[in-house]
Design a protein around this nucleic acid. Structure first.
Lengths: 144, 144
DNA sequence: ATTATTGCAAAGACTTTGCAACTCC
DNA sequence: GGAGTTGCAAAGTCTTTGCAATAAT
């Protein structure tokens, strides 16, 4: 039960950030939600448990956590920002029916891409990261 | 000189949209700019030549053109929308220094990805498109 | 004690909308 | 002539900011 909470606490401390109840609650909520919420959606959920945390704090905290690399920003279809508590290398599946974002882990693919770009060498470009956006629809919408 | 303009005119007509001077000017400008501008940036440039076209029209027109598939939307790093007049299959290089977006065409890579996902078959997912986001820095910033 | 963080509300950036006037086909 | 498009300004949405009060180390 407290797993997400202690994970949140550890990650905040490891980032040299002050461990405040607000930050712990926000990161804990993000870890529990696995659907890459916007700041607004996270606030809506959080507000039921912790009605005293303001929307402004949610925005500020998510930005701070992202800058420390504790969480990631994801750009949604409509241009609004979403957040992702998983920082391991992964790609995203964008469901064009529901606009949901699903994580996609694939080590084999990562190796394939690394090999490809090691040989390809785009002139003048120093590649930091390569992410796939897989766009499609799930036959069973429960999955996304 | 009039190449971009006639291209604009043809594409708008082909999309069963009325060929208005505003639409032609907006699409022509987008074709001429090869840096994936936001609606705002396009408006700024357009406004010098055609001061009578309003920002609202730029937004509406870009949205209309995108819905017809004449242009594409691209999500920027900061979450604001950008537009791209090139609809051929291509990927994007995001420069983490300058936030510019550069087109990346690579047929070999497209084949590789198509083959990979044909065999992989993510359960329940019908893939419509796969786009790469290559994040990196150019040693020579002139290039992006 | 010091410095960072929070809450609030206001401001800012970006985008959409409503509607009368107008224009393309 | 009629349906679709434009301009304008207002409203809407999302996000950031300023600052005094508060809390963490």
């Amino acid at each position: 039960m407290g797993k997400a909470r202690s994970e949140a606490r550890e990650k905040i401390a490891a980032g040299n950030l002050k461990v405040t109840p607000q930050r712990v609650a926000i990161l804990e909520t993000l870890i529990r939600m696995n659907n890459h919420p916007t700041a607004d959606l996270l606030y809506a959920k959080l507000n039921k448990k912790e009605p005293n945390i303001s929307l402004g704090t949610v925005y500020k905290t998510l930005e701070t956590l992202a800058q420390e690399g504790i969480i990631n920003k994801v750009k949604s279809d409509t241009g609004s920002l979403r957040y992702d508590a998983i920082t391991d290398r992964h790609h995203h599946i964008f469901c064009s029916d529901t606009n949901n974002i699903t994580d996609y882990f694939d080590g084999e693919l990562d190796v394939l891409l690394s090999d490809y770009f090691r040989n390809k060498n785009i002139p003048g470009l120093n590649i930091e990261d390569v992410k796939l956006h897989i766009i499609g629809t799930f036959s069973d919408n429960q999955q996304c």
